[in-house]
Design a binder for these strands. Structure first.
Lengths: 252, 252
DNA sequence: CGGGTTATTGATGGTGTTCAAGGGGTGTGG
DNA sequence: CCACACCCCTTGAACACCATCAATAACCCG
C-alpha cells in the first residue's frame, strides 16, 4: 500500500506524525471496534441495532485525488468518513469554485438525504468510508428515531458552522479568515487526534483559498506574514502554531 | 393597530399589494385553519397529534423593529413564523454584521434545538409567530418521529441554502450577488403569495448589504445600475422586475 | 536531470469600500 | 400648513484591500 506523502513527517522539522488518523483503516474489524464510531452518526446505535446497521454498510477506500461524487450526481449512496480528508466544493460554470467544507473522520456525507448531491466530494488523501445505499439508509433511519435525531443534530451542527462561515466570507478581512481557518482546523484535529500545535494540512493552498473566498496568492502571502511575525512555522504538508494567542486575536 | 408603511402600496406606482401575508394574523383560528400550516413543520401532523401540538403553542405578535431574541440568549422558546419577515443576523464585536437569513411565514426559528441561539432575530415588519417552550417542543418531537423527520428536512434545506450563500459570498461579484438575491427573494414570495414581478422588500438597503457581504452604497449603486438598464423599477418598499431573464443572466 | 505541479513573492490594477454631500420621504410641532 | 428633524437612500470622489498578472522558487516524481 502506498503511503501518501502528507502522512509522513519530514524529519528535519518535526517528529510528530501529521496523519489525520493513525490506523491505515480504522474499520477493518467490526463496527464495535471502530475508532470513529463515537464521533459519527452510528455512535447512537447499540447492540442489535448496531448489528443491523452494520449489515447495511460497505467499506470503501479512495485513493488521493479521486472523486467520490460530483455536484448534481444522483445520490445512490451516503457515507461516513472513517479516515482521511474529503473536500466538499461547489463550482460555477466559469471555473470559480467555493469549498463548502472539509470532511474528516466521523463526518457524514449526504445529510440532506436528497436525491442528488448539492456539492462535489474529492479525496484529499487516502480516504476510507462506510458506504450505505441511500434508500436502505433512509428506510433504516425512519425506523430508528434516535438515529433520525442524531442525523438532525449533525445537520444542525453543520448549519451553525455554515452560518459562521457566512460571517467569515461576508465580513472578515483576509488575515482574519486565514487565522480563523487555522484555529478551526486545529480544534477539529485536536478532537480527532489530540494534535496541539503541529497541524496537518492535507489540502492545497488553492483549496484553502477556495474555502476562504480568497486567491491562492493572498493565502500564501498571509501565511508568510504570520511566519514573519513568528506566529507559526510552515512545515511540509502542514504548519506548526507558535503563537496561539496572537492567532486568536487576529481571528477576531 | 398601526399599519406598517411596508405593507401599503403607493398608488402612483403600482396597485399590487406588497404585503407578505394578506391576513393580519393567519392563525387567529385553530391550527387546522392556519394558512401556513402546510409550509411549516407542523404540516406533517394530523388529527390527534395536531391537537396535542396545538396545545403547546402560544401566538405571539411583534411590532416592527422589535427584537425576538439575541445571539447567545438562552433559547427558552422556538418559533414558527406565521406572518411578516424576521431578520436573522450575527454581529462581530466591532459592529460588522452578517445577516444569515430572512425568515418568512412557514420558517422555523430554533432548528438546532440548542440551548442558546446562534444568531439574533428582529422583526422587520409586523410579525406573528407560534411560540413553543423549547423543552416541551423537544420532548414532543422525541415522541413523534415524523416531526423529527420534518425538522431534519427543514435543517437540511437550510443547510443547502447556506452552502449556496457561501458560494455567493465567497465567489460572486456585487452585481451577481444583488441579482441572485432579488431572484431568490422573488421565488420565496412567489411560493408564499404568488408575487410575480412586484416584490415587497421589507428589509432596508443596509440589511440587504449585510446579507450579501457588501456595503449599503454598493447595493444602492447596483440597484441603480439595474434600473438604468431597465431590468427593474424601484417602488416604495420594493421593486418591480421588468427584465427577468436579464437578471437571471446577471446572477450567473 | 527534467517536466509538471504547487507555492512564494513582486508589481500593478480593479472592484468595492470609505468618506462625504445631498436628496427624498415621513412624522412632528409650531 | 409649513418648517424642521430624522432616517433612509442615492450619488460622487478618493482610497484600500485584495485580485490579477508575472516571474521565480520549491517540491515531487518519473
Amino acid at each position: 500500500m502506498r503511503v501518501h506523502s502528507g502522512l509522513m513527517q519530514d524529519s528535519t522539522t518535526d517528529s510528530v506524525s501529521l496523519s489525520l488518523c493513525s490506523s491505515p483503516s480504522a474499520c477493518t474489524g467490526t463496527c464495535l471496534q471502530c475508532q470513529v464510531r463515537a464521533l459519527s452518526v452510528c455512535g447512537v446505535l447499540e447492540g442489535e441495532e448496531m448489528a443491523e446497521f452494520a449489515a447495511l454498510l460497505e467499506h470503501t477506500d479512495l485513493q488521493p485525488r479521486s472523486v467520490l461524487f460530483l455536484q448534481g450526481d444522483a445520490a445512490a449512496y451516503v457515507y461516513t468518513v472513517t479516515r482521511g480528508c474529503v473536500r466538499l466544493s461547489k463550482d460555477l460554470s466559469d471555473g470559480r469554485r467555493q469549498v463548502v467544507g472539509f470532511a474528516l473522520p466521523g463526518d457524514f456525507l449526504g445529510l440532506s438525504l436528497d436525491k442528488r448531491f448539492g456539492f462535489s466530494a474529492d479525496a484529499l488523501d487516502s480516504v476510507s468510508l462506510c458506504r450505505f445505499d441511500r434508500r436502505e439508509f433512509t428506510a433504516f433511519v425512519e425506523r430508528k428515531p434516535q438515529l433520525m435525531r442524531r442525523m438532525h443534530e449533525f445537520a444542525a451542527h453543520e448549519l451553525t458552522i455554515a452560518q459562521d462561515q457566512m460571517v467569515l466570507l461576508g465580513r472578515r478581512r483576509a488575515e482574519e479568515r486565514v487565522a480563523a481557518f487555522l484555529l478551526g482546523w486545529r480544534d477539529r484535529l485536536h478532537k480527532l487526534t489530540g494534535a496541539d500545535h503541529t497541524l496537518a494540512l492535507p489540502m492545497t493552498r488553492q483549496d484553502i483559498a477556495d474555502y476562504l473566498g480568497l486567491t491562492i496568492e493572498t493565502v500564501s502571502r498571509t501565511l508568510s506574514a504570520f511566519v514573519r511575525r513568528h506566529w507559526l512555522v510552515i512545515i511540509p504538508d502542514g504548519v506548526r502554531v507558535v503563537d496561539l494567542s496572537a492567532l486568536k486575536t487576529a481571528a477576531g
